[in-house]
Design a protein around this nucleic acid. Structure first.
Lengths: 103, 103
DNA sequence: GAAACATATCGATAATTCTAGATATATCAT
DNA sequence: ATGATATATCTAGAATTATCGATATGTTTC
């Protein structure tokens, strides 16, 4: 029954269109974002700015959304210089799916 | 991307502890509820009263929750006399899981 | 048809979530 | 140090959700 609490927490986070989109976009950065000028790769995911621009929402909102995703352990942030890159946490996502599968 | 809207709709409904519990309880009525005195079976699911009593929440709240579950197509209501029985809609639930699996 | 019962709907308040603008912080370049 | 840039945090109002009590509706029984 503890597992349920995790499901609820994730469901709350993923009950929002933009946050669900973000998680989806991060699955295939090459497809959804321009290349990182400095890094040249997406090994740490995508920088917050690109996510914000693609979403069309305000910077503060996206920063907040990324925090929510992070608190639910759905994404892993990596700070490099002034940029913060976000990548999916496949382990949590996979656990979530497995738990839901038993519903 | 339309599929996402369905996921969001279901996630909203299942971001609530009680509603998630209800769906879980309905998976195995024998385990979670006393037998129906009149019917003697759970072929149509479980009557709203039993669900309400088990949940510990008010009658109006549970009636409302059951409506939300119904609107998301997660349960199927059957009215028999003064009772309304609710059973899981396994098709929708299965679809939901499959869609999420692609996330 | 009146009483009893199960469920549904209405109305209202409290709590939470959504979202943005303003501001703060951290980092880089000059 | 200063200015520019990326991100984070604070504050706040609007919108939505959670939940209940009261009332209405539908059904059965007498």
């Amino acid at each position: 029954m503890f597992v349920f609490m995790e499901i609820i927490e994730v469901n709350k986070v993923l009950a929002n269109q933009t946050r669900l989109n973000i998680l989806h976009w991060l699955k295939d950065p090459e497809r959804h974002f321009p290349p990182h000028k400095e890094l040249g790769h997406f090994d740490f995911g995508v920088c917050a700015q690109y996510i914000q621009e693609k979403s069309g929402m305000s910077q503060s909102t996206i920063s907040h959304f990324l925090l929510l995703l992070q608190q639910a352990d759905l994404v892993i942030p990596t700070r490099l210089g002034k940029w913060t890159y976000y990548q999916r946490n496949e382990e949590t996502i996979s656990n979530y799916k497995q738990h839901l599968a038993r519903l």
